[in-house]
């Protein structure tokens, strides 16, 4: 089975700082890591390849430093890495990102399965997987916590809010995974060293390689624009009501009335 894994480089910090002018994440000075769920997607791909044969290609769109993530992915065992990097890709929203990734997957041609993380810890939208599937016109299985492959199909267990769902889909198919799917291996030291050698199987593709126009990708190709980004003030004003149940109920109704919350007259 030939598998493409979407891997995003994200800042390794829980305190994401935002540029007040542009509303974008400040990535300078923060170490980048592979988005945690993407490691699980890659682990799943490696296990499937080891059982059924085929090839694992990791695909990432990002600035030049995102090559670190590709190297780590090769050191975990991926066969090939492709970094989509070009100034014209910069400032992409999820639509433009999905378009760019989708184009690249079309260019890869040979694939049975696309694996992605459910969600990136910085952007957090969980939109990329589904949008890439739509772009490619293939089925999508999201929130997957168990995955099995058959001839020409995959069977997945999806986590739902109140249970789980078993679904079978024909290949080619896109699957987004949760971290409960598996325990990712660490890159090996030999793999890390080899991934930095000149002959490591890493390709860099730019806009011309994908045959995209500048207006289709990046900021120009984005359907949304960040007007303003801010941290919501989390200051909640909790009021504790005390007394007998009847007294508390009366106080509560008064309080709601004061706030002009209609109580369904």
């Amino acid at each position: 089975m030939d598998i493409v894994v979407l891997v995003k480089q994200v800042p390794n910090t829980t305190e994401v700082r935002i540029d007040p002018k542009t509303g974008n994440l400040i990535r300078e000075g923060v170490e980048s890591i592979i988005n945690p769920e993407d490691r699980h997607a890659l682990e799943a791909a490696l296990q499937i390849r080891d059982n059924t044969g085929g090839k694992v290609t990791v695909l990432s769109m990002g600035p030049p430093q995102a090559i670190d993530g590709i190297c780590e992915a090769l050191a975990m065992g991926a066969d090939r890495g492709i970094l989509l990097s070009d100034r014209i890709f910069a400032g992409a929203d999820t639509w433009a990102t999905s378009t760019t990734l989708g184009r690249a997957i079309r260019k890869i041609e040979q694939f049975d399965l696309v694996l992605a993380g459910r969600q990136a810890v910085d952007g957090d939208t969980a939109q990329i997987g589904p949008q890439v599937a739509e772009y490619l016109g293939i089925p999508q299985l999201t929130y997957v916590q168990k995955l099995e492959v058959r001839e020409g199909a995959v069977i997945a267990e999806r986590a739902l809010e109140d249970g789980c769902e078993h679904i079978e889909a024909p290949t080619p198919v896109l699957v987004t995974v949760l971290s409960s799917l598996n325990e990712p291996r660490y890159p090996t030291v030999a793999g890390l060293i080899d991934s930095t050698r000149p002959r490591a199987p890493i390709e860099i593709w730019n806009g011309a390689d994908l045959g995209v126009k500048a207006y289709e990708v990046g900021l120009a190709g984005s359907l949304t624009q960040v007007v303003k980004t801010f941290t919501p003030k989390g200051a909640r004003n909790t009021q504790y009501l005390e007394g007998s149940p009847a007294a508390v109920a009366a106080q509560l109704i008064d309080a709601l009335r004061k706030k002009e919350i209609r109580l369904g007259e």
């Binding site: 030049p64 090559i67 670190d68 190297c71 780590e72 050191a75 970094l83 990097s85 890159p187 030291v189 890390l192 060293i193 991934s195 930095t196 050698r197 000149p198 490591a200 890493i202 860099i204």
Partner: peptide, 10 residues
């Protein structure tokens, strides 16, 4: 694109 240094990745 310049490759990272192996000791940094390690």
């Amino acid at each position: 694109i310049p490759k990272p240094k192996p000791e940094d990745l390690i």
